[in-house]
Computed example of a mutant assay.
Amino acid sequence: MFTGIVTAVGEIVALDTREVGVRLRVASPYDPDGIDMGASIAHMGCCLTVVDKGRLPDGRGFHDVEASPETLRVTTMGDWTVGTKVNLERSLKLGDEMGGHLVTGHVDAIAVIESRVEEGDMAVFRFRVPHAFAKFVAPKGSVALDGTSLTVNAVEGDCFSVQIIPHTLQVTTWGERKAGDRVDFEIDLMARYVARLREAEAAG
């Protein structure tokens, strides 16, 4: 589990396309000595398992992760190349502060940035999500976008908007985001279960 509070920005420094899936090497500020083999780290909101770790010749720490074809299909990971910057978050520990909302790291779909409008030192982003997932987004509710917990400002059809504060723009990949970019989208965990309960009730 995660909270959607990004704690570092990593960089893809190697990418190995396998017969099935892909293996990625991610450089980050995380101390590799503090990362357990098999640990879960969210990369742009996608929970991935650490399969190797160490230090690069330049002294930066790195960790390796692997992704299946299904992960590549439902996330933006298939667009990543060497040099791509990624939002990172270590998994939640019991007793940690819950600064965002409960995030599973299981990306539901890809959303597209329809527009970005600067408002002072903040930015308002408008997103379009696949129609099947629009019902899970509510005004003042939470969504995880590229692994960042954000509050929905307004909803209109299959689109919704969020306002991102200067701090988030500076310490995540959001400062570089623009109209037309694709982002990883995870619906709120509570919304998922409420919708499932309603479906079960309707089915009798």
Results as ranks from 00 to 15, higher is better:
residue 122 M to G: 15
residue 10 G to F: 12
residue 8 A to F: 08
residue 109 A to C: 06
residue 122 M to R: 15
residue 68 S to V: 09
residue 107 V to Q: 05
residue 14 A to V: 10
residue 71 T to N: 08
residue 35 I to A: 03
residue 131 H to G: 05
residue 54 G to F: 15
residue 104 T to E: 08
residue 123 A to M: 04
residue 50 V to C: 12
residue 110 I to M: 13
residue 3 T to V: 08
residue 64 D to T: 13
residue 47 C to K: 05
residue 200 A to E: 02
residue 169 L to I: 13
residue 35 I to C: 00
residue 98 M to Q: 05
residue 172 T to R: 03
residue 3 T to M: 01
residue 51 V to N: 13
residue 14 A to P: 12
residue 32 P to T: 10
residue 138 A to K: 11
residue 90 R to L: 08
residue 122 M to H: 10
residue 33 D to N: 13
residue 157 G to C: 08
residue 58 D to T: 12
residue 162 V to K: 11
residue 113 I to W: 05
residue 175 G to W: 00
residue 32 P to N: 11
residue 51 V to Q: 13
residue 47 C to M: 01
residue 20 V to P: 01
residue 162 V to S: 13
residue 9 V to M: 03
residue 134 A to W: 01
residue 29 P to L: 12
residue 201 E to N: 06
residue 70 E to Q: 08
residue 171 V to Q: 14
residue 198 R to N: 04
residue 104 T to P: 10
residue 73 R to Y: 04
residue 30 Y to S: 00
residue 179 A to Q: 03
residue 53 K to T: 03
residue 152 V to W: 00
residue 154 A to G: 10
residue 204 G to D: 07
residue 154 A to F: 14
residue 44 M to N: 15
residue 32 P to Y: 07
residue 74 V to I: 12
residue 196 R to N: 12
residue 75 T to S: 10
residue 137 V to P: 02
residue 139 P to V: 09
residue 153 N to M: 04
residue 100 G to R: 07
residue 105 G to H: 05
residue 69 P to T: 14
residue 163 Q to V: 11
residue 66 E to Y: 13
residue 49 T to K: 07
residue 137 V to H: 05
residue 10 G to L: 06
residue 114 E to H: 02
residue 119 E to N: 14
residue 108 D to Q: 08
residue 75 T to P: 14
residue 27 A to R: 04
residue 129 V to C: 06
residue 59 G to T: 08
residue 167 H to M: 04
residue 186 E to V: 13
residue 177 R to L: 14
residue 76 T to V: 04
residue 158 D to V: 11
residue 192 R to V: 14
residue 150 L to E: 00
residue 79 D to R: 14
residue 189 L to Y: 15
residue 175 G to M: 03
residue 156 E to I: 07
residue 178 K to M: 06
residue 204 G to N: 07
residue 93 K to I: 04
residue 163 Q to E: 12
residue 153 N to G: 09
residue 118 E to T: 13
residue 32 P to S: 03
residue 101 H to R: 02
residue 66 E to C: 13
residue 106 H to E: 09
residue 167 H to L: 02
residue 53 K to V: 04
residue 123 A to P: 00
residue 159 C to G: 09
residue 132 A to Y: 07
residue 23 R to L: 03
residue 71 T to Y: 10
residue 81 T to L: 07
residue 44 M to L: 13
residue 36 D to S: 15
residue 37 M to C: 10
residue 72 L to H: 00
residue 90 R to T: 11
residue 14 A to C: 07
residue 150 L to Q: 01
residue 83 G to F: 08
residue 13 V to G: 04
residue 21 G to C: 04
residue 21 G to L: 01
residue 91 S to W: 09
residue 61 G to T: 03
residue 20 V to K: 02
residue 79 D to G: 07
residue 192 R to G: 14
residue 73 R to I: 02
residue 104 T to A: 10
residue 193 Y to D: 06
residue 185 F to H: 04
residue 193 Y to G: 04
residue 76 T to E: 01
residue 137 V to M: 02
residue 72 L to A: 01
residue 165 I to H: 01
residue 89 E to K: 12
residue 56 L to S: 01
residue 203 A to N: 06
residue 147 G to R: 02
